[in-house]
């Protein structure tokens, strides 16, 4: 990465930080429109930086720009929207667009698994809790942030640090020279001879049997991790039930039912 692109990247992050600062809920001082303007500038600068990393644009490039724009915009709204329900919905948008990016990275199985787990299960329970706890009015703690300036500075400096290093990836070991991942799967990974040469591109798609490969990897090399995650889920289930269960009264205790005339009178169970 040349110094010019690095400075452009920093500029993009500075703009983005300003945008997020203006959009974060700060009571009357919130200026979402100004923030959105800064954010737009930041996205344009970022796409300029990223376009230097793209060697030959093809259709995946356009999909990448589309879905990453949606992902970033929705992620900003997740952390800045004053209503938690909207935050949760924007998070679903983030999940869907990240899943699209995963599909572009040929991880279809993980993409759909993420949608099923996040959008299908986790976010429904989040919405459930939000709806139980909060009705439509916005309480004061949702329209004020803690230390927005310092947090934005810390977060965006971290972002710049990670992103600058990440943008320097030279794909030196591109295609599967890693024999361990071939395990017992019948599908042979694509491998061409020139793996040592940093070409700057990824040449071949991995394979079509993505589910098969992930399954083989999970069930052979990482089988212990799989077992442990099963135990973890069990522990979480027990913990969640133990924490949130209602205190049930003792056996035989019955609250008195209010007399409602005929309705509510005791009858023999049939």
């Amino acid at each position: 990465m040349t110094p010019e692109t690095a400075y452009l990247l920093y500029f993009a992050f500075a703009l983005g930080g300003a945008g997020v600062y203006f959009m974060l809920p700060r009571g009357e001082a919130t200026k979402p429109a100004v923030g959105a303007l800064f954010g737009l500038g930041s996205l344009i600068a970022l796409s300029l930086v990223l376009s230097t990393r793209i060697i030959t644009p093809d259709h995946t490039t356009y999909y990448f720009y589309l879905f990453s724009t949606i992902a970033i915009a929705a992620a900003v709204r997740v952390i800045t929207h004053p209503k938690p329900v909207y935050s949760a919905l924007y998070f679903i948008l983030v999940v869907i667009s990240v899943s699209a990016l995963l599909v572009l990275l040929e991880a279809e199985f993980l993409a759909v698994a993420a949608i099923i787990v996040y959008a299908g299960a986790i976010m429904v329970t989040y919405l459930f809790v939000i709806m139980l706890a909060q009705q439509t009015s916005t309480p004061h703690y949702d329209s004020r942030s803690r230390e927005p300036l310092l947090a934005v500075m810390a977060g965006f400096v971290l972002m710049a640090a990670i992103a600058t290093r990440s943008a320097d990836i030279a794909p030196s070991r591109v295609v599967a020279s890693d024999a361990r991942s071939q395990v017992t799967s019948p599908v042979v990974l694509v491998s061409d001879g020139a793996t040592d040469e940093p070409t700057g591109t990824i040449n071949e798609p991995l394979t079509r049997g993505n589910t098969l490969l992930v399954g083989a990897s999970v069930m052979t090399r990482y089988v212990v991790v799989l077992e442990i995650s099963g135990v973890l889920l069990l522990v979480s289930m027990v913990g969640a039930i133990a924490m949130s269960r209602k205190r049930v009264p003792m056996e035989g205790y019955r609250p008195a039912a209010p007399p409602l005339g005929q309705i509510g009178k005791e009858v023999e169970p049939y």
Binding site: G16, V20, L46, V49, L50, R53, I54, I55, T56, D58, T60, T61, F64, S68, A71, I72, A75, V76, V78, I79, V94, V98, L101, L105, A151, V152, A154, G155, F156, L158, M159, I162, A163, S166, A167, D168, I169, P171, G200, T201, I202, N203
Partner: peptide, 20 residues
Amino acid sequence: MNSLAEYSVISAILFALGLV
């Protein structure tokens, strides 16, 4: 084809936004 660096940058942005 892309160089994959941009995916990494996007992931860094998502992570840092989550932190903020």
